[in-house]
Amino acid sequence: MIEAFHKKIDVLLQQIVDDSRWDLDSETLFVVTGMTFYGYCLGQKIVFMLEQEDVNKAVVERLVALGAGQKYTEGLVEAAEQAFFKNEETLYNQLINIGHNYFMMDDLTELVDNIYLNTKAILKQR
């Protein structure tokens, strides 16, 4: 089951980083991607009947593989887990829920676009 989970989540992450808008140097984009990706992975946890630790480990591994720092990424995933399970109305929680809402979709184009549009909107607010 874990291999099928990895294949499924890798499809989304590949679509995100293959997009011409991808920029690892954008911390805002990375956080929006991380939170949304985490939410998507949480949905897959249900499908593949995995433990929370499996999801966290997979997300950290994939984000670090993109070039992010290990400690930074672990902190991001820890914040995502806390935001999701506290179910508070925060930006992190909203991004996680967006990803989670797409976990049963095969066409992830809209979700990928959503990541970039949310990043743009957040950057405009600064």
Score class of each variant (00 low, 15 high):
residue 2 I to T: 11
residue 3 E to T: 04
residue 5 F to V: 04
residue 7 K to L: 12
residue 12 L to T: 07
residue 14 Q to L: 10
residue 14 Q to P: 10
residue 15 Q to Y: 09
residue 17 V to M: 06
residue 18 D to Q: 13
residue 21 R to P: 01
residue 22 W to Q: 04
residue 22 W to R: 06
residue 22 W to I: 02
residue 24 L to C: 08
residue 26 S to Q: 02
residue 27 E to F: 02
residue 28 T to D: 08
residue 30 F to T: 05
residue 30 F to D: 06
residue 32 V to I: 02
residue 35 M to K: 01
residue 36 T to C: 03
residue 36 T to M: 04
residue 37 F to H: 02
residue 38 Y to A: 01
residue 40 Y to I: 06
residue 41 C to H: 01
residue 42 L to G: 02
residue 43 G to Y: 05
residue 44 Q to Y: 00
residue 44 Q to E: 11
residue 45 K to V: 04
residue 46 I to A: 11
residue 49 M to T: 12
residue 53 E to L: 10
residue 53 E to H: 14
residue 54 D to H: 13
residue 59 V to E: 06
residue 61 E to G: 09
residue 62 R to E: 08
residue 64 V to K: 05
residue 66 L to W: 05
residue 67 G to E: 01
residue 68 A to D: 05
residue 70 Q to R: 14
residue 70 Q to A: 09
residue 82 Q to A: 15
residue 83 A to C: 12
residue 87 N to S: 15
residue 92 Y to P: 07
residue 94 Q to E: 14
residue 95 L to N: 05
residue 97 N to Q: 14
residue 98 I to P: 10
residue 98 I to V: 14
residue 99 G to K: 05
residue 102 Y to W: 13
residue 105 M to C: 13
residue 108 L to C: 09
residue 110 E to H: 14
residue 111 L to D: 02
residue 113 D to C: 09
residue 115 I to G: 04
residue 115 I to M: 04
residue 116 Y to H: 07
residue 116 Y to Q: 00
residue 117 L to W: 08
residue 117 L to E: 10
residue 118 N to D: 11
residue 122 I to W: 00
residue 123 L to K: 10
residue 123 L to Q: 12
residue 125 Q to P: 00
residue 125 Q to V: 11
